[in-house]
Design a binder for these strands. Structure first.
Length: 761
RNA sequence: GCGUCCAUAGCUCAGUGGUAGAGCGCUUGCAUGACACGCAAGAGGUCUGAGGUUCAAUCCCUCAUGGACGCACCA
């Protein structure tokens, strides 16, 4: 008698057991797969989750989609490598950790670098462990033996090498520029990390001698070094190249008036003040007119407060200073008028929302143009395919207008920039006191260099790399470029599956850096999924309190249900709406599959030497199954996971369970009714109507009256019925396995003990 | 300003150049040899609007309206 299953699929115990079974098999590791040597590799590099907190619904989406790919191709005989990792997530983690410190009444600026680093190291290692177990709970069939962390020594070493190469090729350079400075986090940010928000502020019209100009930032006027107009603006032609005298807040001032195309004659009065230290456009204007006008006059510091150059306003925060300066201007009669509600975009920190302060800082930049051109070409040549295809347009647009990338961050958490600066003064070696030597001011080196000519020390740049600088190299770093065995086998990788929100941050930069270092594209296909929204289409965020904890949901309804809910209705590039109702629906589906299997197993005929006698309907049903299989395969190959999942759902429930199983019930019913029938039927229901006397099945009574050979025939038919049902069940389990790995494997274990659906063909 | 996407059932979303689909919800009836997390039957749609291409448009094209988003910005 076959083992009876419970009427409910008990996911919590089974999922843990099954994952353990898989992991112990070693088949997540492509080297250990029981496949022939000729089996082709298939590689997916996992976007490494940030090691600074728990996984969220977005992670569940990528785990599901990538695990579908990994399992599907593994079952099709490829040597699948799905390589997991974790990201130190420099600035993001620094922000999380800063908050933690704040709660403890501490502050990172008061903690010595080494101590802070150690604390953050411990913090991320803890999070990493949690995250790894969460990935296991989501069923990720990734090769843990190859897991990488972005701060592994071999990764750091290669990131350093990349930087050295870029420097030597003239693509990495250090320069003073007006950068996006967050006064709260006290670091510069890249252009991508700036969030522009619309705000209404007063627009002040200020008199500069004979001219009037409009600004929203009167507090920066102490940093003015010139006035500028458009060269074609007839109104101001007579002033160009001349000096004007103006009454300033702190006294009399003299400015040269210059002409620059950056000035829009239609805006305000068509005159601007040039404040190179506190505005990036003004900085660029100054760069173009360096000979004519003075440069950086810094009047705002790193804390967003006015410097001592501003006299009575020193120490005031920008917002207060603005009002005070305006009042003073009004008092001395240089404030012409104020437009109170001027709408404009303000640059803010994407993490804390602080208004960014444009400040001049020496930073490391990457020259992007040459890298971008190659990245554009590779995609134009079709070396990388995008899903959805339209993403390419966005990709091209960004790359064609790319600006140099500031990779310096003034934080501790990250890979330190391997740049060393010579002490300001030379310390001549003994015996060479009188020599005139030319010491190198800057050396790029992972370790502390020594000066060739003198005894002065080199001081390392305190900054760390933008986390995306190392992430951009992730595909080849994780595979052990340049000499690793894996690199030779698994690179370029097959698919990069990630969210469309990091197309520029990550995908485009991976393509650029991959091409730069390896000469090859890092992946052949990019699949971009959408962002997860709640049932009201709201973006999930902690502050809104609408975050779906995927692990909690998996706990309640099972991982398989969560995964199905994330796949069905989820098309490439479009946002994903998740609701508990939907997950519950697929939990029901898991139970359905379970009960189909339960029913079939209950009716397994005793093994007898009877010929299986197939009917026409059997062949028809198997043919339909074959068609479904072809369709599902094709959908997955085309990255149409939602269509594959929907078709499977529909077939399993509404064809297999509702029609085929019902249709075959009679044919299975050759022997006495199984004992469970009476036992499982809830008592008190139907007994009077379905009593033994009236409700004897025709098949049963038939079997009683049949001759020996006729009995053989009926049993042959019964075996055929069972055979068809079991075949369909097995095929459905196989097809469903990439989507719902746990319940399918568990049932498979009942049907084929000792084998693994994980590597079933 | 430049660009991208979306608009289909009450809700959330699939889909297709030729009778319109799913989940959830709703209505009605149900213990039927696994499943009430179930079974059966059913209601519900001018596929945003206006043009165009076509024998035929929800689908392709143009414009409009409403919504989401990205990029770049003017002080």
């Amino acid at each position: 008698m076959p083992e009876n299953l419970d009427p409910r699929y008990d996911h919590p115990t089974i999922e843990a057991k099954i994952y353990d079974l898989w992991e112990k098999s070693g088949f997540f590791n492509p080297d250990k797969l029981p496949y022939p040597k000729s089996a082709k590799p298939y590689t997916v590099i996992m976007p490494p989750p940030n090691a600074n907190g728990a996984l969220h619904a977005g992670h569940a989406v990528f785990v599901t989609l990538q695990d579908i790919l990994a399992r599907f191709w593994r079952m099709r005989g490829k040597r699948v490598l799905w390589l997991p990792g974790a990201d130190h997530a420099g600035f993001e983690t620094q922000v999380v950790f800063d908050k933690k410190l704040e709660k403890e009444g501490r502050n990172r600026f008061q903690i010595p670098r080494e101590k802070l680093w150690q604390e953050m190291w411990n913090f991320t290692q803890e999070n990493k462990k949690v995250m790894e177990n969460q990935l296991r709970k989501l069923g990720a069939s990734c090769d843990w033996s190859r897991e990488k962390f972005t701060l592994d020594p071999d990764i750091i070493k290669e990131v350093h090498r990349t930087f050295v190469r870029l420097y030597e090729d003239g693509l990495a350079y250090r320069d003073v520029r007006v950068v996006n400075w967050c006064p709260k986090h006290k670091t510069a940010l890249s252009d991508l990390e700036v969030k522009y928000v619309e705000r209404e502020d007063p627009l002040y019209y200020i008199k500069y001698g004979p001219l009037t100009l409009a600004t929203v930032r009167p507090e920066t006027k102490f940093g003015d070094t010139a006035l500028a107009v458009n060269p074609k603006d007839k109104r101001y032609k007579k002033y160009i190249g001349k000096e004007i005298h103006a009454q300033g807040v702190l006294g009399k001032l003299t400015f040269k008036v210059i002409a620059d195309d950056a000035v829009d004659p239609a805006f305000g009065t068509g005159v601007i003040k040039v404040t190179p230290a506190h505005d990036s456009t003004d900085f660029e204007i100054w760069q173009r007119h360096k000979e004519e006008i003075p440069g950086l006059r810094i009047v705002i510091d790193e804390n967003g407060r006015l410097t001592k150059e501003t006299g009575p306003f020193a120490g005031l925060k920008v917002a207060e200073a603005r009002e005070k300066v305006a009042e003073e201007m009004k008092r001395i009669g240089i404030l012409e008028k104020v437009e109170p509600n001027y709408k404009h975009q303000v640059a803010t920190c994407y993490k804390c929302g602080s208004t960014l302060e444009p400040l001049p800082k020496p930073q490391w930049f990457i020259k992007m143009k040459p890298l971008a051109e190659k990245a554009i070409k590779a995609v134009e040549q079709g070396k990388i395919k995008f899903y959805p295809d339209r993403t390419k347009k966005v990709y091209f647009h960004w790359l064609k207008n790319i600006r140099d990338w500031n990779i310096s961050r003034q934080i501790v958490w990250g890979i330190r920039i391997p740049a060393w600066y010579h002490e300001p003064k030379c310390v001549p070696k003994r015996g060479h006191e009188g020599d005139v030597v030319k010491c190198k001011e800057l050396i790029i080196s992972p370790t502390e260099p020594k000066c060739e000519f003198c005894d002065a020390k080199f001081v390392q740049d305190p900054d760390v790399f933008d986390t995306w600088f190392s992430s951009a190299q992730w595909p080849f770093l994780t595979l052990g470029y340049p000499n690793g065995k894996d690199y030779k086998i698994f690179y370029p990788t097959d698919v990069m599956e990630t969210g469309y929100d990091i197309l520029f941050f990550w995908v485009a930069r991976m393509i650029m850096m991959g091409l730069y270092r390896t000469g090859k594209v890092p992946f052949k296909t990019v699949y971009l999924h959408g962002l997860v929204r709640d049932k009201d289409r709201q973006k999930m965020s902690k502050s809104k309190g609408n975050v779906v904890n995927p692990l909690g949901v998996a706990e309640t309804y099972g991982t398989d249900a969560l995964r199905m809910a994330l796949v069905v209705g989820n098309t490439a590039g479009n946002d994903i709406v998740i609701s508990e109702d939907k997950i519950r629906g697929y939990r029901n589906f898991a139970t359905k599959i379970w009960n189909i299997a339960r029913f079939i197993l209950m009716n397994k005929p005793e093994a007898r030497d009877v010929r299986v006698a197939m009917r026409a309907e059997d062949k028809k049903n198997l043919a339909e199954l074959k068609r479904l299989k072809a369709a599902v395969t094709k959908h997955i190959e085309k990255f149409e996971f939602h269509l594959a999942a929907e078709k499977l759902y529909h077939y399993v429930w509404h064809t297999f369970a509702d029609k085929i199983v019902e249709q075959y019930k009679n044919r299975l019913r050759v022997n006495e009714p199984p004992a469970f029938g009476a036992a499982t039927r809830p008592s008190g229901h139907g007994s009077p109507l379905h009593g033994e006397s009236e409700a004897e099945s025709p098949a049963k009574s038939l079997a009683g009256r049949l001759s020996g050979s006729q009995k053989q025939e009926v049993r042959g038919d019964q075996r055929a019925a069972y055979h068809v049902l079991e075949t369909i069940l097995l095929e459905c389990l196989t097809m469903l396995h990439p989507f719902m790995p746990f319940v399918t494997e568990e049932i498979y274990q009942k049907l084929r003990p000792g084998q693994l659906l994980l590597v079933e063909k």
